[in-house]
Every structure is written in structure tokens, then in C-alpha cells.
Nucleic acid binder design. Structure first.
Lengths: 239, 239
DNA sequence: CCCGATTATTGACGAAGCGTCAATAAAACA
DNA sequence: TGTTTTATTGACGCTTCGTCAATAATCGGG
């Protein structure tokens, strides 16, 4: 009986995952108000009280969903950062990891927008809030690592007073802004953006070009690098 | 009696503004849940029903608040676009207008995040939704105009297949992403970002440099341009 | 294997807040 | 001044969150 975890404890652990599994599409399809505690309980054939044993409020479920995907992102990013190539190619790999992430979890950015709203954020637990921060820090840290490598390898020289963190903040806000818009804005076509992912990729690359991060995007075959990244790092994720 | 508008109609018009004026700080300080229809009615010494005569639901108030500030942004942007200087300087002026906008309405981006959430957006009226779109289109249109001027004046040449809209999408998502993070993320310091506005400015400039938009940011005195912009365009807004 | 102690589950209930609407008051008009 | 139209009111219904006392299941020691 004692494999360090009892039958009951296992059941409880699995239920936590089931709660999130049921909640995710509910939130994705119907938004904040569509995520309904009674309906979650009903779908799981458990009472509402039991759900509240796992999550002290609805907002805790939402932030837990965000944390799940942010952890997945750390995995994608760290694998990408290990891509064998020059610093700029490794950055490219991370950019591609971000694209995969968006395609795997198309509404992560909507979810993050929800939890970051004042009255929602305030209802979440300190514990999960710091989880979110930690995930973010680690993910940004991976990118900063590549930038630092670029500098030490002589591929990149930053302006005086401008830190690697500042650069990463730039690309981070750029891409998260773009993906948020893609996720929440239904009239991109009208704005004249037909291939948003390609546009983001090109814009970010130009941003790095602007800092003189070698090799510049005109000097290497980006598509070829992406093909290699797919084959060597994300074979599983790309069919 | 007939000055095309009766006393009563005037009173009703003014009340609409008062509703928004009371709601804005409520939403800013206490978020979505803190915006309370009963409390709005109480503060205005009117019944709830009267409030509902103006706005059919809470979400309509929120989107109306967003529209108010988006209209202000159009004003700031269009004035900036008229700045006398080369294309790159005019873009700089718009960037500075964006900074002023953020400082005037520090939580506009939080508000926009709220209205763009599925279950909130769905409750707003078609009328106001298209107002939002129109404001966005016009604002982006102003920036596109400057990019087009840059091209026709020979300051900028875009890569094949890359449109002015694509470039503007890049800087737009970049800056809105950054300002959203600034508005909702309390741990920027921890991430190593001490001067977020300056960092955004530099990152966006490098992005433009990446496209070869002349003059490059190293080849002209940005601070001097900003000083001129303050004096010639935004004297009122900057004290 | 049994029985008290601990832990988990339940669902009826209270509270909060949104939005409605029939009744009432005010304004417009003739 | 009387009639019609328009505006205001606030009690009420409804939904949904989150609680908690009662009940059931599990655990652990003898």
C-alpha cells in the first residue's frame, strides 16, 4: 500500500489535472464568464466543494492554466537554446519555439491578459503568483543567456548603458504584444496583415539587425535554419 | 426653448460624461470587479436604472472608457505626424506622442486588455466595437502615412513582399506589448529594466534601423528632436 | 479486524452584483 | 391646462460565487 503515495492521494492528484483539463476549453471558448464553477463540478461529477478543495477560487484555476502552459514554454525555449549553431541561429531557434508555443496554446496570451487584470490578479494566491513570475524569469533568462553568448562570442555589441536584459525586454514585449494582438484581434486582415507569423519573424529579425547582431538576417538563410531547427529540436512538435 | 437642444437633453449628455468620469478611477483602481453599477449610481445620486439608460451593461462603460482615450490618442498622433522634419523625425514624434499618451492614461492598456477578453468583448455593442476598430485603424493609418512618406522620399526601402502595414504592425505590437507589460507587471525592476520608457524608445529605434530607415538612430540627435517635438507640438501636454 | 480520529465530500445556503420592469414622475407639446 | 411622450426609480429576479455544517470515506493503532 505504501509506495510513498496512497491510492486516495493519487486520485486527488489526477483530479487536479482533470479539473484543469475540463476548464481549459471552457475558458478558451467562452472566456472568463464562461468558466463556471458549477459546470466544472457537474462535468467532473463531483460537488462544487471538492473543486474548491483544489482551487480556492475561479481565478486560481485560470492562473494554474497559465502556469501549465508557461512551464511548457520553458521546456520549448530551453531545448531551442541548445540548438547547435551560432548565437543568431540559436536566437532564431528560440523565436521558432515561440511560434510553436503559440500554435500549441493559441490562447495562452488571452489567458495571461485575464490573470494580469487587477481584480483577477488580486484574487490569486501568492504561491501561484510567484510561480508565474518564476516561469517568466526563467524563460527570459534563457533568452538573456543567448544574448550574453552572442556578446562574449563577438557577434553582438550593445550600445553603452544598454543591457542584455533591455534587448530581451524589447523582443519579449514585441513578440508577446504581437501574439496578444493575433489572439484577440479579429480584423488583422483588414489592417493588411495576411501572414502575421511571418511578419513577426521578419520584424524581430530586423530589430536584431538594428543592434548589429551578426550574422545579419540578410546574410544567412533563415528558412534553412528553421528547417534544421524543426528536424533537430522540434521533430515531435512538428508532426 | 429650441436652441436645437433642450435643457433636459443637455443634462443627459453631461450625465453620460459624469458616468464615465466616475467609472474611470473605479476601474483603474479596483479593476473589472471593482467597477460596480450600484456604486456608480450611488456616487452620481441617480438610480441604477438611469445608468442603464445610458449604458446597457457594465462592459459598455468599459469600452466607452477605452474609446474616449483612443480618440485622445488619435489627436496626439495626428498632431505628431504633422511635425516638421524628415520622415524619421516625424516617426520619432509619433513615438513620443505614444509616450505622452501612456503617461496621460497609464491604464489604457489594462482597459484594452479587459475589453478584448472574449466574454467581455461579446457583451459590448456592435456600435462601440466598430468605434474601437475605427480608432485603431485611424491611428495605425497615421503611422502608415509617415512610413509611406519615408518610402516616397527615399529614406526607406522595404524588403520585397513586405508592406508598410507589416512594418507598422511590428512597431505597433512592439510598443503596445511593452506598455501593457509596463502597466501590468510589477516586477520590471527584478527583470533588470529600470528605465522602461527609454528602453522602449531605443528598441523601437533599432527596429527601424534594422530596416535601414534613414537617418539611422546613430546619425541624428534623438534627444534634440524630442526637445523640438515638446516645444513645437506638445507644449501643453508637457507642463 | 475493528473503532476512534482524521481527512474528504457534499449540496443547500448566504451574499453579491447584474440587469429588468412596472409604477411613478417629469417634460414636451398642443 | 390636459394629454402624450419620455425619463427616473428601486424593489425584484436571477445567476454565480464561495462557505460550511453535516455526512461519508479513509487511515492508523491496538
Amino acid at each position: 500500500m505504501e509506495s510513498t503515495i496512497t491510492q486516495k492521494q493519487l486520485e486527488i492528484q489526477q483530479r487536479e489535472k482533470r479539473i484543469l483539463a475540463v476548464s481549459r476549453p471552457m475558458l478558451a471558448e467562452q472566456g472568463y464568464h464562461g468558466l463556471n464553477m458549477d459546470r466544472i463540478a457537474e462535468k467532473l461529477q463531483q460537488s462544487k466543494g471538492t473543486i474548491y478543495n483544489h482551487f480556492s477560487c475561479k481565478e486560481e484555476i485560470i492562473i494554474a492554466l497559465a502556469i501549465e502552459t508557461m512551464e511548457k514554454r520553458i521546456d520549448l525555449f530551453s531545448r531551442a537554446a541548445m540548438f547547435r549553431g551560432n548565437s543568431r541561429e540559436r536566437f532564431q531557434a528560440i523565436g521558432f519555439a515561440a511560434e510553436i508555443f503559440v500554435k500549441l496554446y493559441p490562447n495562452h496570451f488571452s489567458v495571461e491578459q485575464i490573470i494580469r487584470s487587477t481584480s483577477i490578479w488580486d484574487k490569486t494566491s501568492e504561491k501561484r503568483r510567484s510561480s508565474v513570475k518564476l516561469c517568466e524569469h526563467r524563460c527570459i533568462g534563457i533568452v538573456v543567456g543567448v544574448v550574453l553568448d552572442a556578446i562574449s562570442q563577438g557577434d553582438l555589441e550593445l550600445p553603452k548603458g544598454f543591457t542584455p536584459q533591455d534587448l530581451v525586454f524589447g523582443v519579449w514585449s514585441h513578440s508577446s504584444g504581437a501574439y496578444s494582438i493575433i489572439a484577440t484581434n479579429d480584423s488583422l486582415e483588414e489592417l493588411g496583415i495576411s501572414e502575421p507569423f511571418s511578419v513577426v519573424r521578419q520584424n524581430v529579425n530586423r530589430q536584431l539587425d538594428g543592434f548589429g547582431w551578426k550574422p545579419l538576417s540578410g546574410d544567412f538563410d533563415i528558412d534553412a535554419v528553421i528547417k534544421r531547427v524543426i528536424k533537430e529540436v522540434f521533430a515531435d512538435e512538428c508532426r
